[in-house]
Computed example of a mutant assay.
Amino acid sequence: MPQPSPGPSPERAAYGFVLYLASYILFALFVIWAYVPDEVLHSIGLTYLPTKAWAIVLPILGCIGAVSIPVVYFIINILHTQALEEEIEIHSKSNIPEPTIQNFDLSSGSVPPIVELDLATVCRHLNLGKDKLSPAS
Results as ranks from 00 to 15, higher is better:
18 V>Y: 08
112 P>G: 03
79 L>G: 09
94 S>R: 11
7 G>D: 12
90 I>L: 12
58 L>R: 09
109 G>R: 01
14 A>W: 07
11 E>G: 05
82 Q>R: 15
53 A>S: 13
33 W>P: 06
65 G>C: 07
22 A>T: 09
19 L>M: 12
55 A>V: 03
54 W>N: 11
60 I>A: 10
24 Y>H: 14
90 I>P: 02
37 P>I: 10
58 L>M: 08
89 E>D: 15
118 D>F: 01
82 Q>Y: 10
17 F>I: 09
102 Q>G: 10
120 A>S: 03
32 I>G: 14
13 A>Q: 12
53 A>V: 06
36 V>K: 15
63 C>L: 13
85 E>L: 14
94 S>A: 04
10 P>Y: 01
30 F>W: 15
82 Q>N: 10
117 L>C: 01
84 L>D: 15
63 C>G: 08
48 Y>V: 03
24 Y>F: 11
6 P>N: 05
75 I>Y: 15
114 I>F: 00
115 V>E: 02
60 I>W: 04
46 L>E: 02
100 T>H: 11
120 A>R: 04
65 G>E: 05
35 Y>W: 11
118 D>Y: 02
66 A>W: 05
86 E>V: 10
53 A>M: 10
108 S>K: 06
81 T>A: 12
110 S>E: 14
54 W>P: 03
109 G>L: 02
100 T>A: 09
70 P>R: 04
7 G>P: 02
65 G>N: 05
92 S>K: 13
31 V>Y: 13
90 I>R: 08
86 E>K: 14
38 D>Q: 13
58 L>G: 00
112 P>C: 03
40 V>R: 05
113 P>M: 01
109 G>D: 04
29 L>D: 02
62 G>C: 05
52 K>D: 07
13 A>L: 12
15 Y>R: 11
110 S>T: 05
24 Y>S: 08
100 T>W: 08
112 P>V: 00
70 P>Q: 04
122 V>S: 00
87 E>V: 12
40 V>T: 08
38 D>I: 14
42 H>L: 12
108 S>P: 05
52 K>L: 01
59 P>C: 02
72 V>H: 05
49 L>Q: 02
85 E>A: 15
58 L>F: 06
28 A>V: 03
89 E>R: 15
99 P>F: 10
97 P>I: 04
114 I>Q: 04
44 I>E: 02
74 F>C: 04
93 K>T: 03
76 I>N: 15
57 V>A: 09
52 K>I: 01
37 P>E: 07
23 S>K: 11
35 Y>P: 00
48 Y>I: 01
68 S>I: 13
88 I>P: 08
68 S>G: 08
118 D>C: 00
17 F>N: 11
80 H>Y: 11
41 L>T: 03
113 P>T: 01
34 A>W: 13
22 A>H: 07
9 S>T: 10
123 C>S: 00
75 I>M: 15
36 V>G: 11
28 A>C: 06
19 L>N: 10
13 A>M: 11
57 V>T: 07
53 A>E: 15
71 V>T: 07
111 V>P: 01
93 K>F: 04
57 V>Q: 08
22 A>R: 11
56 I>F: 13
45 G>I: 06
14 A>K: 10
56 I>C: 08
